[in-house]
Amino acid sequence: MEAGLVERGRDVVGHVTRVGYVKKIITKRRRTRRIVRPPQVAPPMALQELFVSCLDVFKGPGTVPSPQDVQKLCHILDNMKPEDVGLSAELQFFKPSNGVKSDPRVTSTTIYKCDNFSLCMFFLPATGVIPLHNHPGMTVFSKLLLGTMHIKSYDWVDSVDSDSSVQSSQLRLAKLKADRVFTAPCDTSVLYPTTGGNIHAFTAITPCAVLDVLGPPYSNEDGRDCSFYKDHPYAASTGEATVKMEEADCYGWLEEIEMPENSEIDEIEYLGPRIIEHR
């Protein structure tokens, strides 16, 4: 008898998640077999280059990468392909569902995380949504690897410590930074702690995969928790902020809310190419 490995299941992006042992009858004469361990496979050059660059670029909480460093990371991410992180458009997750409704829950996986930055991916099925949320004190690079999605993003107009009547009404004025559809491959989006669309929402039109670089990563202990918002048209509020009528469509009122129902993200193990941590 000989034991062999067989695939038992795949995760939402098509990676093998469970294996089982089966036994098969060996009818030929038994032979002595030498076990050869496969050599360690080097990660794709782009993924390793991204990791090494992040080590140099991100200096910790309270810092923002220089324009030159932002350009360097964008150049790497702009040229990254799904295969660099073990994905392919041929995976079942990214193929048309033929009318079969899929679970709209979003899934994520972490490639690497340290105190200064994290590399993670988000997988959104068609109609999947990551609600409007912020990134306090963080610089974030988002690269759409596969699929088509709608992105809506805002930046605050007033400062956090404003004592205006807008604050007291639990609504804050925000300026619309993006409200459009993106299809992979496309350029990397960059948001900063206070600019670039720090508050954004993703809505998948087709199954999507997004690679995010966050520096520093979310941390409840360090005050970088995620907050959620609901946006209201500018004309829907009588707040004292004044915006020219012809510019009203470029603004909205954001209301902080509890995490929307059914918006929790399932975490799965990363099974793609591994980075090499030593330099």
Results as ranks from 00 to 15, higher is better:
Glu2Trp: 14
Leu5Arg: 11
Asp11Glu: 03
Val12Ser: 14
His15Gln: 09
Val16Thr: 11
Thr17Lys: 15
Thr17Trp: 10
Val19Ala: 08
Gly20Cys: 10
Tyr21Pro: 07
Lys24Gln: 15
Ile26Ser: 09
Arg31Asn: 05
Thr32Asn: 08
Val36Phe: 10
Ala42Glu: 15
Ala46Gly: 04
Ala46Ile: 04
Val52Leu: 14
Ser53Tyr: 03
Asp56His: 10
Lys59Gln: 13
Pro61Phe: 14
Pro61Val: 14
Val64Asn: 00
Pro65Trp: 01
Gln68Tyr: 10
Val70Gln: 11
Gln71Glu: 12
Gln71Arg: 13
Cys74Val: 05
Ile76Trp: 00
Leu77Cys: 05
Leu77Lys: 02
Pro82Trp: 06
Pro82Val: 11
Glu83Gln: 08
Glu83Pro: 02
Ala89Met: 14
Leu91Ile: 09
Phe93Arg: 01
Pro96Lys: 06
Asn98Trp: 04
Gly99Tyr: 09
Lys101Ser: 10
Thr107His: 11
Ser108Val: 00
Ser108Glu: 12
Thr109Asn: 06
Lys113Gln: 14
Asn116Val: 02
Ser118Cys: 01
Met121Tyr: 00
Ile130Glu: 06
Pro131Phe: 00
His133Lys: 00
Gly137Ala: 02
Gly137Met: 01
Gly137Gln: 04
Thr139Gln: 02
Phe141Val: 12
Phe141Leu: 13
Leu145Thr: 03
Leu146Ile: 15
Gly147Thr: 03
Gly147Val: 09
Thr148Ile: 08
Met149Lys: 09
His150Cys: 03
Ile151Cys: 05
Ile151Glu: 07
Tyr154Thr: 06
Trp156Gly: 05
Asp158Cys: 12
Ser159Met: 13
Val160Thr: 11
Val160Tyr: 11
Asp161Phe: 12
Ser164Ile: 01
Ser164Glu: 02
Val166Arg: 14
Ser168Tyr: 13
Gln170Gly: 09
Gln170Trp: 01
Gln170Glu: 14
Leu176Trp: 07
Ala178Val: 12
Val181Ile: 15
Phe182Asn: 03
Phe182Ser: 08
Phe182Asp: 06
Pro185Val: 09
Asp187Ala: 13
Thr188Val: 11
Val190Met: 04
Val190Gly: 05
Val190Cys: 04
Thr195Tyr: 03
Thr195Ile: 07
Asn198Lys: 11
Asn198Cys: 11
Ile205Tyr: 06
Cys208Trp: 03
Cys208Val: 12
Cys208Phe: 10
Ala209Asp: 12
Ala209Asn: 07
Gly215Asp: 00
Ser219Ile: 09
Ser219Tyr: 03
Ser219Cys: 13
Glu221Arg: 11
Gly223Glu: 08
Cys226Trp: 02
Cys226Met: 10
Cys226Gly: 03
Lys230Met: 07
Lys230Ala: 08
Asp231Gly: 01
His232Thr: 05
His232Ile: 13
Pro233Leu: 04
Ala236Pro: 06
Ala241His: 05
Thr242Asn: 09
Val243Ser: 13
Val243Lys: 12
Glu246Phe: 10
Glu246Tyr: 13
Glu247Thr: 08
Ala248Met: 04
Cys250Glu: 15
Tyr251Asp: 04
Trp253Ala: 07
Met259Lys: 07
Met259His: 01
Pro260Arg: 02
Ile268Ala: 00
Glu269Pro: 08
Leu271Met: 08
Gly272Phe: 08
His278Leu: 14
Arg279Trp: 14
